[in-house]
Simulated assay, not measured.
Amino acid sequence: MSSSYVRAQIRHVEEVIQSDGPDDYFTGPDHDVYEVLVEHGPAAAFLDWFQQEDPYDLCRIGDTAQFIDLGSAKSPHDGAVIDFTFDEFFPRWLEAVADVAKAHLARMASTAIDALHDDP
């Protein structure tokens, strides 16, 4: 029997609803806030992977463990658990960080090419 390398629970934190009341003025879109609580394993690595490969289409709030849902049809239920062994998690994490690195390199290359075109 294999044990968990990383285990996280998704908790619903709050529902934010548009209002125009003087005490709670908010005109942004309605959304739900979730927090991904890493109970076991490398929290930073898991959150980086979850941000890239999130099966629920949530949007991360900065570099926190909180994510917002703007009405996805795939919203997680409160208390949803994601559990991986090392052999399951490591290749997924490696692919996610490689994709981020490739995107960063492509952006740097595009910036360099644009700079060449701008020089007389």
Rank of each mutant, 00 (worst) to 15 (best):
D24N: 07
G28Y: 01
V100Q: 08
K102M: 11
A96G: 10
S72R: 09
T27W: 09
D63Y: 09
P42I: 00
F86N: 02
C59I: 12
W49A: 00
R107G: 15
D83A: 02
Y5D: 03
L105M: 07
T111R: 14
D63V: 03
H31D: 04
A80G: 05
Q51S: 11
T111N: 13
V13M: 11
D20P: 07
V97W: 02
V33M: 05
M1T: 14
F26S: 08
D69R: 03
P42M: 00
P76C: 05
D119R: 13
V97R: 01
A115N: 10
E15Q: 15
D20V: 14
R107I: 12
I10Y: 00
F50L: 04
A45E: 04
I10V: 10
H12A: 07
V81K: 06
T64L: 02
S19F: 05
E39K: 14
S110V: 08
R60V: 01
G41T: 03
E95N: 13
K102V: 12
V97N: 01
Y5C: 02
D114C: 05
A112T: 10
V100Y: 12
A98Y: 15
A80W: 02
Q52N: 03
R7Q: 03
K74Q: 12
G21P: 05
F89P: 01
A43D: 07
L47N: 00
H31I: 04
E53M: 06
E39N: 06
F89D: 04
E15N: 10
I113S: 11
A43F: 00
H77C: 10
D119N: 12
E88S: 03
D32I: 03
